[in-house]
């Protein structure tokens, strides 16, 4: 019986935390692959034993991105995305065939760009999942609310809207919209990207978020742009780091 409960607990964890992984992460690796230099593409393929677009980072541990009260990035704990990025780059500079370091780097860059993974000191809403209510903008008898978790919204909801697309097609679409900002997004270092992500987080978390927070259609649609932009930033920046390492 204990074994069954353990299995079910793991299943529950996978269902709640794994949804993001299943759809957005393959899109990030697919989009990253489109922007690798031929050298980086070859080197990562040699290390991973597969094309970068095909590498699986969904089953890896999740990393968090920490900010202090002033929205300045800080490193905290073992599963800190910024810390892992630094360590992985160091390892890869020593050994370019380090498969584990490539996969950790990919997952950490991706996770740093997820709103659901942001933890802001002094902001309880960033530490606790809470319910958001997607309102259909109608009143009276026709008013409808669809409830979901805050983290589900960012990790899964937007990607699920395009779940019938393959990861490659979804990546192609993200690219089509953001390609003219490629240089802008890639400019800087991981530390500067962290500051940029902090600014993105400030816009979102500056709202007076609370349990049962109601989102109008406009809110939901506006944040879809944020979601896609963060996917593009994660992909372009991951490609920039890998291109630099394998230059």
């Amino acid at each position: 019986m204990k074994k069954s409960i353990l299995t079910l607990s793991l299943l529950l964890f996978t269902l709640s935390a794994g949804a993001w992984n299943k759809l957005s992460l393959p899109a990030i690796t697919a989009l990253t692959a489109q922007h690798l230099t031929p050298e980086a593409a070859l080197a990562t393929k040699a290390a991973l034993g597969t094309d970068f677009a095909e590498c699986n980072i969904t089953d890896r541990p999740k990393y968090l991105f920490h900010l202090d009260e002033e929205y300045s990035p800080v490193c905290e704990g073992q599963n800190d995305a910024l810390l892992v990025i630094g360590e992985a780059v160091e390892r890869l500079n020593k050994n370019k065939g380090d498969k584990e370091a490539i996969l950790s780097l990919a997952r950490a860059v991706a996770d740093m760009h997820s709103v659901a993974n942001v933890r802001i000191k002094g902001n309880d809403m960033s530490y606790n999942d809470f319910t958001v209510r997607r309102w259909n903008n109608r009143n009276g008898k026709m008013a409808r609310y669809k409830d979901c978790g805050w983290r589900f919204l960012w990790n899964s909801y937007y990607a699920y809207k395009h779940a019938i697309l393959t990861a490659e097609l979804y990546a192609e679409d993200i690219n089509l919209y953001h390609i003219n900002r490629l240089d802008d997004f890639q400019k800087g270092t991981p530390a500067e990207w962290a500051k940029d992500m902090a600014a993105e987080s400030r816009v979102i978390y500056s709202r007076e978020l609370k349990d049962n927070y109601v989102l109008s259609q406009e809110d939901v649609n506006y944040w879809a742009f944020t979601h896609d932009r963060l996917l593009a930033k994660a992909s372009y920046r991951l490609a920039a780091i890998l291109n630099q390492i394998f230059k």
Binding site: L11, C148, Y160, K161
Partner: peptide
């Protein structure tokens, strides 16, 4: 709970 989560995922799309 597991069933409700999978239903939620399917319906969200």
């Amino acid at each position: 709970v597991a069933a409700s989560l999978s239903v939620q995922s399917a319906k969200a799309w």
